[in-house]
Design a protein around this nucleic acid. Sequence first.
DNA 1: ACTCCTTGCAAGTAACTACTTACTTGTAGC
DNA 2: GCTACAAGTAAGTAGTTACTTGCAAGGAGT
Lengths: 224, 224
Amino acid sequence: MSPAGGSSTRARLIAESMRLFGRQGYAGTTVSEIEAAAGLSGGSGSLYRHFPSKEALLSAGIREQITQGTELLNRIEAAGAAADAPLRASLTAIAVAGLRRLEQEQDFNRILVKDLSLFPELLDIARTEEIARIHAAIAGWLRAHAASGSESKDWAAIATVIIGSISHFWLLRDIFGTHPADVDEERYITALVDMVVAGLAGNEGETDVSPPEPEPNNIARTKE
Amino acid sequence: MSPAGGSSTRARLIAESMRLFGRQGYAGTTVSEIEAAAGLSGGSGSLYRHFPSKEALLSAGIREQITQGTELLNRIEAAGAAADAPLRASLTAIAVAGLRRLEQEQDFNRILVKDLSLFPELLDIARTEEIARIHAAIAGWLRAHAASGSESKDWAAIATVIIGSISHFWLLRDIFGTHPADVDEERYITALVDMVVAGLAGNEGETDVSPPEPEPNNIARTKE
DNA sequence: ACTCCTTGCAAGTAACTACTTACTTGTAGC
DNA sequence: GCTACAAGTAAGTAGTTACTTGCAAGGAGT
């Protein structure tokens, strides 16, 4: 049986399992539920015609999501490198784009946070293929676009602060429905961008930045 | 039998269940495991002498952790209000204290992120008793200690950025073991504090960028 | 027709799930 | 010793879990 709605059964199983894993967690989602959500008869082992195990289904979904994510990341990198807008507007656009991306990939992010600790090889893929690349892209963007005459800074650390801040705003909103401190997206991004702009302009000689490692070796590190 | 090692069975059940829930998730932890971890005979229903259900055990653990957390919060508030150190040192101390607190309550935070979405009444307690209070405390501290002559700002939003940034740094380190971007705690806190200090001092970093730029349509912040 | 292969379902499997019941134990007060 | 009671255990309960097996329906190619 092939002409079922236009999407293959395998693709439907992956998509629905990611949705259910994201909502209920891996352990809290049964194979029967996944089958039923994908249009199969729940309780029959039809899932095992397409995947050898529940874990293999999770693995396939994670890997597929990551390959899609890197394609999206490549496009973002290209767009960011070509951007010529003023700093504040560019940072705001990046922050908004990051939030939209977090929302778009909410199931993947939920699974990453909730359950991926139990699957170390998937964790490793997510780290090297997705998260580390995003950090490197933002850090590189900062170095290229914000170093107008000022001294060099710890771009990787600044990128980590920015990404972490936006990611946690999404996470709290995802968990609680609304942000527990009742700060909406507009105020949040404005406050973040204000701080980043001020920090990048920063030639305030008030107290010197502690330089433990001026330019650590986390960009362009060796791959195995 | 009461004097068993110094801790009551009920307390041991709560502590071990929080540890296991944090590591494996609520659905991924069995009553049998909890009993065995608490020194009881796993598989016997001994847990039900102390709690009517697995969910009641989770609820008791969450509530107990929150009451302990608020006591700790009160002490932090008092210490912060009395502090008279320079801004940068105070902010650094707050950031470090926040990270230590996140690590100390790692099981609670893991459960909050992983499983509490399925228990809305516990989510609500955590939001109002813990998270909202922390945000209010930091926002109040900023308003009191950082408004030296400068104009008023959106303190709640700035506090949210700071807290979210630190929380996400802890979360990523907790999930991956080490931070996926290889930024250590020292560099991270330095970068964050630099940005906050510059943003708070910012009667220059903000005003010289905002007026002429064609900003996107998301700049209209409200202050509370 | 034939074989080969895929995809589905019904009906299982053994193991595990949260939870219960009946009973034993240790300890305390009188 | 006797009672009272909290706390532990063994051995269940009925239901659920991931996963398997037998079989049928349908193509595709020959």
